[in-house]
Simulated scan of single mutants.
Amino acid sequence: MKFSTILACVGLISLSLSACGGGSPAQAKDAKPEVVNAVPVEVARAARGQIAASYNGTATLVADHEAQVAAKTSGVLIKLFVEEGQSVKAGQVLAQLEQDTARAKLAQAEAQMRAADASFTYNEKAIQKQLIAQKDFDQAKYNMQNLRAAYEEARLNLQFTMIVAPVDGVIAERSVKLGNLIQTNQNLFRIVGMDPLQAVLNVPERQLGILKAGQPVTLDADALPGQKFTGNILRIAPVVDSSSGTFRVTCEFRDKSGTLKPGMFGRVGIVYDQRADALTVPRSALIEEDGETAVFVVEKAPDKPADDKKDGTKKPEAKVADGGKSDAKPVAPGLVAHRKLVKVGYSDGDKVEIRSGIDEGTRVITVGRNAVRDGTAVQVLNVDNEDKQLAQKSAEEKKA
């Protein structure tokens, strides 16, 4: 009876200790810490720098001048002095036609002209002495003028047997061969001017009051990667095409080296304003929604009060099962994303000017912004030197 009473007392004492002990070691072992599901992102800092306002368009280079060289007389082609790709000057001889026929016609026209001159001289003296009628004198005068014109035509035909370049340029095409019988007005060569070259842009009408003649332009040709050429706006069309809502802007490029060629396709940039101290962010940070422009900035989350017991003692830290390892990825604690409305200005390549909404040094999300919302916990993957210094300083303060 006494032994049974002692066992009952021991059992009651064990139950009481279990109720007051705060849980068994097995329960503590099974407890898992709260894991924050942070979204991995990459950020960039808003920084000040130079930005340019520009218009960019595409165009094909065309020659400032081009000429089709045609024959002005007929004859057999007996000499060629130039070939395709050769540079020529205005007045330079390109080819020659046979001249025998032209020389014979010139000699004939000269003889007839001299006979008419002699007849007119005789009739001029005779009319002074009233030996001939006025009618005969006028006829001799007209014959003389007619044969002089015929002589001049024959002289020009002989001159036209020498084919000359009407403009400076490069022989882009030769359409005939030696021995061909050339007819009047037949195309023989095509000459293309290589300097200057022009690019014609069809610019939206909203730029009409911004672009001016003489403004500098740049050209990046697809066929010449890594090379940039400079020029200027030559002229601007004063009217807007009502069907397309654009106006023509003609740009001129002078390339003495001859690297640029007519027909090349390129991208033309026209810088019309610059800011030396603009606050900029990468274009990838911008979010366009409902007519508003915003960015997600990364900020430190507000500190939460410690979860202590009523008696002032903290809860013991729980260990993670499976050897202290966790499937959750390590995260940078205390970072959240906040949506900020911004007002943008100029854009230049991958940079955009921010005129209001954020300050210099603010971290904006550039990669992963579509996966976050206002208040989302984030993990910054590309930690910069400034972030490392702040983390180190925070760690030192905690140790102190």
Rank of each mutant, 00 (worst) to 15 (best):
F189W: 04
H338R: 15
A221E: 09
F81E: 12
D348V: 01
D138W: 01
V378M: 07
L77Q: 07
D308M: 15
E173T: 03
T218A: 03
T259D: 13
S175A: 12
A318N: 11
P238R: 00
M1P: 12
G266H: 05
L7H: 00
D241L: 06
A52R: 15
A223Q: 14
N180F: 10
K340A: 11
D322T: 02
L279Y: 05
L260P: 11
L178V: 11
P216M: 06
A46C: 03
I78R: 03
N123Q: 00
D303G: 10
Y122H: 08
A63I: 06
P166G: 06
T184E: 15
L61E: 09
V62Q: 13
L286W: 07
I6G: 05
S257T: 14
S347P: 05
Q379H: 15
E288N: 15
N146D: 01
G11Y: 06
A221P: 04
E289L: 13
I182V: 14
A8H: 06
E110A: 11
A26N: 11
T376I: 10
D350W: 02
E34D: 12
V10Q: 00
A172H: 06
F296H: 10
Q227C: 07
D307G: 04
G23D: 08
P225H: 07
A172D: 13
G23L: 12
E42N: 14
A47D: 10
V249C: 09
Y122K: 13
E34M: 11
Q96T: 13
R267W: 01
A223I: 12
A278Q: 10
D290F: 08
S87H: 06
N382M: 07
R248S: 15
T280H: 01
V82P: 02
P330F: 01
S326W: 03
K319E: 14
G357I: 08
I236Y: 02
I132Q: 10
R235A: 13
D241K: 05
R267L: 02
P302D: 13
Q186R: 00
E98Y: 07
A321K: 13
A237F: 06
A172L: 00
A377I: 01
K261A: 12
L219T: 01
G49M: 07
P302N: 12
G57K: 03
K2E: 09
R103D: 06
V170W: 01
D241Q: 11
R45H: 01
T259Y: 02
L178W: 02
A52H: 10
A276I: 00
N385M: 11
K79H: 12
T121H: 07
Q392T: 07
N232G: 08
E360P: 05
L15K: 04
F189K: 01
H338A: 10
L106A: 12
D222Q: 15
S74T: 03
K2T: 00
V35K: 14
V364Q: 03
K325F: 09
F160K: 03
M194E: 10
R373F: 05
G266S: 06
G91Q: 07
T250P: 03
S244P: 04
V297C: 06
E42K: 14
V249F: 05
Y272S: 10
Q139S: 13
A221R: 04
V170P: 02
T366H: 00
T250K: 14
